[in-house]
Computed example of a mutant assay.
Amino acid sequence: MRIDGGHTRPVTFEDLVAEGAAVPVEGWDFSWFAGRATEERPSWGYAKLMGERMAHARRALDLQTGGGEVLAGIPKPPPVLAATEGWPPNAALARRRLAPFGATVAEVGENDPLPFADGSFDLVVSRHPVTVPWQEIARVLAPGGTYLSQQIGSGSVRELAAAMMGSQPVTEAQRPERIRADATAAGLMVVDLRAEALRMEFFDIAAVIVFLRKVIWTVPGFTVDAYRDQLRALHERIERNGPFIAHSQRVLIEAVRPAG
């Protein structure tokens, strides 16, 4: 057993696998990873930027809100606040968490049309959307309205994906230049676009398992049973060499629907 912060932690592969498989993964609360994994934060501070935009908005929408964790951190909600979420357990969490803000949460799949009228919002935000419905975003934005999003860039955490599945081609869809092109094609004017690569460290295989169960697009279809051999190899690598290093890719975009 390893002593960490006054608590004992299992160190055998099977114990760590059982621990990682048992952790609840609903919502976007990553506090469980404290002491188990780290990730650098983008320099632009998305939560602060979003809070500033929300404080000046009248009607705002948060797309793919997860359990509403990030949205619940805004200091001043707008008079009208709505959110969407496609996974029912997360949608239920978001409804409870955002109720004090008077927010409505619509259960909407990532690829489904948004259930809002044209020009309904002067602010649309989204942190780490699985897909970006550019045409729908442009449709529900009022003229002069803003879309602010921190997105997952191409090749994010590719080192971990390679450890599980072998080397994978890097998609072009989330490169900054493609994001700009997609936003422009939807009729939006990009006013800010930035990208950063951020160091990640995984200190044990339980943290890897929880991350892959929670961030499901890293290794699509991941299960412990299907990837047990790869997990064991990575566990032995961590035990031998120390933390497993990967890099997340993040892109910030702010775009405006032109007035008139």
Rank of each mutant, 00 (worst) to 15 (best):
I3A: 00
D4R: 00
G5Y: 12
G6S: 11
G6K: 10
T8K: 00
P10R: 00
V11E: 00
E14N: 12
A22E: 09
P24T: 12
E26F: 06
W28C: 08
D29M: 10
F30T: 14
F33S: 14
A34T: 13
A37D: 07
A37G: 06
E40D: 12
P42Q: 07
W44Y: 07
W44R: 04
G45V: 12
G45Q: 14
K48A: 15
L49S: 14
R53W: 13
A55F: 12
H56Y: 08
A57T: 09
R58Q: 06
R59E: 02
A60N: 09
L61W: 13
L61G: 11
Q64K: 04
Q64W: 05
G66H: 05
I74Y: 15
I74R: 13
P75V: 01
P78E: 04
V80T: 13
A83S: 03
E85W: 15
E85T: 15
P88V: 14
N90C: 08
P100I: 10
G102I: 11
G102W: 12
A106C: 08
G109K: 09
F116H: 07
A117C: 01
A117N: 01
D118H: 10
D118Y: 10
I137K: 04
R139P: 14
S149I: 11
Q151F: 13
Q151W: 15
Q151C: 14
S154H: 12
G155R: 04
S156D: 08
E159R: 07
L160K: 05
A161P: 03
A163F: 03
M164G: 03
G166T: 11
G166W: 09
S167N: 09
P176F: 06
R178E: 15
R180V: 04
A181I: 02
A186N: 09
A186K: 10
G187P: 07
M189T: 06
D192I: 02
R194Q: 05
E196Q: 14
E201H: 13
F203V: 01
A206R: 00
K214Y: 10
K214F: 08
K214N: 12
T218A: 05
V219Q: 06
P220G: 11
Y227D: 01
Y227I: 02
R228I: 11
D229C: 02
D229W: 03
R232Y: 15
R237G: 04
R237L: 02
N241M: 02
H247S: 03
V251T: 04
L252N: 14
L252D: 14
I253C: 02
A259K: 12
G260T: 05
G260A: 09
